[in-house]
């Protein structure tokens, strides 16, 4: 099992390296930072000089290794547009986004676990069907639409909650919660719909297993049998989905931050794309990709730990 984990770790590190190379190639290989920086009035001579000055004429791999080296120390360079250091901002923005993502994640799990189990237990009743139908709809609705609907109802119509912007939790915890409720709901509810469906299926599968029938034969209620024996097994496919969801929410946050004007990494990414700020986009994209890969690495490891078949495989 230790070997399994080491192997996964190696794969993870390798993947991040290859991904960083791909990102660097796209944004610093194909894109031309010197031209972008000069913008108007860029003469060929000027571009050439600046390329020289910025060290863009050096071999691709030299530049890549230099960037990679800096990145590993948290030094992502300075934006070509604002000349501000990217690293510190990345940390700030990411912390905002992580609040958003984690809150949404927790919300979706809290909603989906009981709902999915209920849907499974009641799968022959109308309530179960109703839950399935609602989740089917929920899956189709984009998170940003949920956001718009929530703003329309709770901010515009009822005036209960603010329509957007962000409050730093350390400064004003109450205000922070007030501002985050709607964004969390928009991201979390959609993911809850997806998750509910997986939980339902996983639980249904377990309910058909012999050991649960045995447990019930011993006099346990379906709930007891499920909670005592079935959850661990049902957790395996659900765990997988949770990892995927975390990444989905992270990307979904890009749009939801726009709806609620939250100064997270997604809004920064969209701004930087608009400014053709190659280096900043590069830093943000590799960060998000690295997070995605890390999540899938962690899920894989947990998978190995949880699944008895793999433990001895």
């Amino acid at each position: 099992m230790a070997w399994q984990i080491v192997r996964r770790l190696l794969i993870f590190v390798g993947s991040v390296l290859v991904a960083s190379l791909a990102v660097f190639w796209l944004l610093s290989g194909i894109g031309d930072p010197a031209r972008v920086q000069l913008g108007t009035g860029a003469t060929e001579e000027g571009v050439r000089q600046l390329r020289e000055q910025m060290g863009l004429n050096r071999p691709f791999f030299t530049r890549y290794l230099e960037w990679l080296g800096g990145t590993l120390h948290g030094d992502f360079g300075s934006s070509y547009i604002s000349h501000a250091a990217i690293g510190p901002q990345l940390a700030d923005r990411l912390s905002v986004t992580l609040w958003l993502v984690l809150g949404a994640m927790v919300l979706s799990v809290v909603v989906a676990l009981p709902l999915g189990m209920l849907a499974a237990l009641w799968h022959r009743r109308w309530a179960g069907t109703l839950i399935s139908g609602i989740t089917q709809l929920g899956v189709a609705v984009p998170a940003f639409l949920v956001g718009i609907l929530l703003i329309a109802l709770f901010a515009v119509r009822l005036g209960w909650l603010p329509s957007g912007s962000y409050v730093v939790p350390a400064q004003d915890p109450g205000g922070f919660l007030e501002h985050m409720i709607l964004p969390w709901l928009s991201l979390g509810l959609v993911q809850a719909a997806v998750l509910t469906r997986y939980v339902r299926t996983a639980v249904l599968d377990q309910m058909g297993q012999d050991y649960l029938r045995t447990a019930r034969a011993k006099g346990l209620t379906p709930w007891q049998a499920l909670l005592r024996h079935g959850l661990r097994n049902a957790a395996i496919p659900v765990l997988t989905v949770l990892g995927v969801q975390l990444v989905t929410i992270l990307v979904g946050a890009v749009v939801v931050e726009q709806v609620f004007v939250i100064p997270g990494i997604g809004q920064w990414l969209v701004d930087s794309v608009g400014n053709q700020d190659l280096l900043t986009v590069q830093a943000i994209v590799i960060t998000l990709v690295a997070i995605a890969l890390a999540v899938s690495f962690v899920v894989d490891v947990l998978y190995t730990l949880v699944d008895p078949r793999l433990r001895h495989g």
Binding site: V139, G243, V244, T248, L310
Partner: peptide
């Protein structure tokens, strides 16, 4: 099971065939 989980993108994960 040796490869990572079936991925999903955007908000739609492939649905369980339930």
């Amino acid at each position: 099971p040796a490869v990572s989980p079936e991925p999903a993108q955007a908000a739609v994960a492939p649905l369980p065939a339930a």
